[in-house]
């Protein structure tokens, strides 16, 4: 990833995400019971379901942020964790919160995560240009619109170089151009044998990538 190109890496073919027997209760509510799924390299897993059906929670379980009561999530046959055997970053998580500090500029915010994920900071202007954030690079993040914050969060996913993307309603607040950009980078990630798990209400054009739909809750 030192070459600075956001999308220049192909991931190995054996990488595979599986979840088996996942069970989680919240109080007296069963969010999911003995849930299983899998996603192949170059494939996308789309989580759908009505509000409150546990889509975000499932994504957080995959990311390791929430503990499931039973079951496990595996990556290449081993329990999924933030670092793989070679110490490489495996997960890029993009939740509802955009992780931007209101007092830092957009560039400063992204530079922090660039340094943490080993992304060349010299390539940041290019990345900002491709996400359409160049005009607000030096503005404090508190003045950004919700859509611009979402774009910044997507830029962070691109920087991570992780083979597994976990996106929670990534289209929220994005305009038509933003959604088109999201679809483009997603297709490129999948074409490079990356894997993505996406919670989405609207449809996303994944191009030719194989897409599996996981329906949560009662199909209302």
């Amino acid at each position: 990833m030192q070459d600075g190109a956001p999308q220049g890496k192909r991931f190995t073919e054996v990488e595979l995400l599986t979840g088996t027997g996942l069970t989680l209760w919240r109080g007296a509510n069963c969010l999911f019971d003995q849930l299983s799924f899998s996603a192949a390299p170059g494939g996308a897993l789309l989580i759908r379901g009505p509000n409150g059906s546990g889509k975000t929670t499932l994504l957080r379980v995959i990311a390791g942020l929430t503990l499931a009561e039973e079951g496990d999530v595996r990556w290449q046959g081993r329990p999924l964790s933030a670092r793989d055997e070679t110490g490489r970053h495996t997960i890029a998580y993009c939740g509802h919160a955009t992780a931007l500090k209101p007092d830092l500029t957009t560039l400063e915010n992204l530079r922090f995560f660039a340094r943490l994920s080993g992304y060349a900071t010299s390539a940041l202007p290019e990345l900002l240009a491709s996400t359409g954030l160049t005009p607000c690079a030096d503005l404090p993040a508190r003045v950004l619109s919700a859509g611009q914050k979402r774009r910044a969060a997507l830029a962070r996913v691109l920087m991570s170089g992780a083979p597994l993307w976990l996106l929670d309603e990534p289209q929220t607040n994005l305009d038509a151009a933003g959604r088109e950009f999201l679809e483009r980078v997603l297709q490129k990630h999948l074409a490079n044998a990356g894997t993505a798990v996406i919670v989405a209400h609207q449809s996303i054009d994944m191009g030719s990538a194989r897409t599996t739909v996981l329906q949560m809750g009662e199909a209302a």
Partner: peptide, 10 residues
């Protein structure tokens, strides 16, 4: 603001 989620997945 979600920064901790990011730090936890690094």
């Amino acid at each position: 603001d979600g920064t901790m989620e990011q730090l936890l997945t690094l």
